[in-house]
């Protein structure tokens, strides 16, 4: 799946398997830019932020690879990323993956958290509706991701699918290198309990999205 479909000329050093799109931007793009120059601009723009915020915007190895190819990562690199990210998934110690679907519905709808305008200590939501259709009755949904209506029913409530979805939400790049979906568990945006509740929202036969 190609999220970014053009403009790969900037990073000349990156392995580019795709021919250049003949867009206006691609034609006029400056050749490669020294990333330390970019870092300097970033530092002058965000340098006064608290250390924990600065740590957050420092790309890890996975994001460095994604940035270099603008998410259109060559397949050998993609395999490294998915292997690395899958290894980060921490499954619940008690082996129970499904929580409370009603609580999960709330987490999926809650878009708050982790913005610089938020009060400290605010518990973040999953903001799933920003990108996904889920319950049919919720019309305010985004389209950056696929629809999740009928998610559990379509998968016949298969325990293997439950496990896979847990890992997907915990670390979306465990299955899709450079996915634009956040790595909710790995980046500590959501707790294990929140993820279990969302899973129940997706997989409980009583959950409205499976009706």
């Amino acid at each position: 799946m190609t999220m970014i479909s053009f403009g790969k000329t900037l990073l000349v050093g990156a392995a580019l398997s795709i021919s250049f799109a003949a867009s206006a931007a691609a034609q006029t793009a400056t050749k490669s830019i020294d990333l330390t120059v970019v870092d300097r601009y970033v530092a002058s723009t965000f340098g006064k932020a608290a250390p924990e915020w600065l740590a957050r915007i420092k790309p890890d190895a996975t994001l460095e690879t994604c940035n270099a190819s603008r998410n259109d990562v060559p397949s050998a690199e993609a395999d490294k990323i998915t292997a690395r990210e899958l290894a980060r998934v921490v499954y619940p110690a008690d082996g129970k993956l499904l929580g409370n679907w009603k609580e999960g519905a709330k987490v999926a709808n809650d878009g708050r958290g982790n913005q610089f305008s938020d009060p400290p200590g605010l518990v973040a939501g999953g903001n799933c509706y920003a990108c996904h259709q889920i319950e049919r009755s919720e019309l305010s949904y985004g389209t950056l991701g696929p629809s999740l209506t009928n998610y559990g029913k379509d998968r016949k409530y298969d325990p293997e699918e439950v496990k896979r979805a847990y890992a997907k939400i915990y670390d979306s790049q465990a299955f899709a290198a450079c996915s634009i979906m956040p790595r909710f568990g790995a980046n500590k945006v959501l707790t294990e309990t929140q993820i279990k509740n969302i899973l129940a929202f997706l997989f409980d036969p009583e959950s409205p999205l499976n009706k």
Partner: peptide, 18 residues
């Protein structure tokens, strides 16, 4: 212009957004 373009694609933050 080149830095701006690079910043446009640079992912980061807890949601990995750019």
């Amino acid at each position: 212009a080149a830095v701006g373009e690079e910043m446009f694609y640079r992912r980061g933050g807890v949601n990995d957004f750019s």
